[in-house]
Amino acid sequence: MSFWDYFRTTKPATAALAKERLQIIVAHERAQRGKPDYLPQLQQEILDVISKYVEIDRQDVQVQFDRNDDCAVLELNITLPEE
């Protein structure tokens, strides 16, 4: 290995890492766009109400918001524990 190769190989190709991180964060942020910002709180309150009756975890309450051309759909999916 020559003197110059030494410098070359110690320099990691950080641009590839930057691209990967950006693709993930941009995809995530684009998915959040246009969604009402009350969704996390709504999820929490639904969780609180159901917890009065059955014991469930946060991930058992799924809140999905979709908007198409003429209407918006709020989809709630609550998984109850098996008896």
Binding site: K11, P12, A13, T14, A15, A16, A18, K19, L22, Q23, V26
Partner: peptide
Amino acid sequence: RVQNGEMLSVEDVKDIL
């Protein structure tokens, strides 16, 4: 700097945005 892998390339930015 793009060739050295230190800077995002045109293609990278086009892919992302």
